[in-house]
């Protein structure tokens, strides 16, 4: 329970952080993006809120978590990845950066390669569901940008993930 709470708080915090970062400079672009989104009607949440930001829309969920030493997308994240793939398919101008991450055990460069495998797993799933190669860049941050610090399973689990960032968000 405590672990779940921590994860929730971290998610909330990071959501706040990314929103703060964007609010000043990126609002215009976000509006434009939302406009084109609602024109073709794909996944639009209505009410002027971009589906990518609507907390009730699955597209606002941006992280895929993994088991130790694994880069397989777990079944609980399939729907999320599929939703983003559909959004990309329906919004040909949309672009995403997939950032793979790992925990901090072992070689930094090898972890960078492991994080790449994680990002690639999401990219490949998206390509299979209609997104196009030019829309997706899969990169790795390895162990360099931990969301949770410290040694221990809860921190490690939080850091084994791929983040989905849309253009304008990075």
């Amino acid at each position: 329970m405590k672990k779940l709470l921590t994860v929730l708080i971290i998610c909330l915090l990071s959501a706040c952080a990314s929103q703060n970062k964007q609010s000043a400079e990126v609002d215009d672009r976000a509006m434009a993006g939302g406009g084109s989104g609602s024109q073709d009607g794909a996944g639009a949440g209505g009410f002027g809120l971009s589906p990518l930001r609507d907390p009730n829309n699955i597209l606002s969920q941006r992280s895929v978590y993994y088991d130790y030493d694994s880069y397989t997308i777990k079944s609980e994240y399939r729907e999320l990845v599929l939703a983003h793939a559909r959004y990309l398919r329906d919004n040909g101008d949309a672009k995403v950066l997939l950032q793979g991450n790992t925990d901090d055990r072992g070689s930094r460069e090898y972890n960078l390669a492991l994080g790449q495998k994680r990002a690639n797993s999401v990219k490949n799933a998206m390509l299979l569901s209609g997104a196009r190669d030019q829309q997706i860049e899969a990169v790795s941050l390895g162990e360099e940008k931990p969301r949770a610090t410290g040694h221990g399973e809860s921190a490690w689990a939080e850091n084994r993930r791929t983040d989905i960032l849309y253009q304008g968000e990075y």
């Binding site: 950032q99 860049e137 790795s140 960032l165």
Partner: peptide, 8 residues
């Protein structure tokens, strides 16, 4: 290797 561009 620098991550200043949000990627290595």
């Amino acid at each position: 290797v620098s991550f200043e561009n949000k990627k290595p």
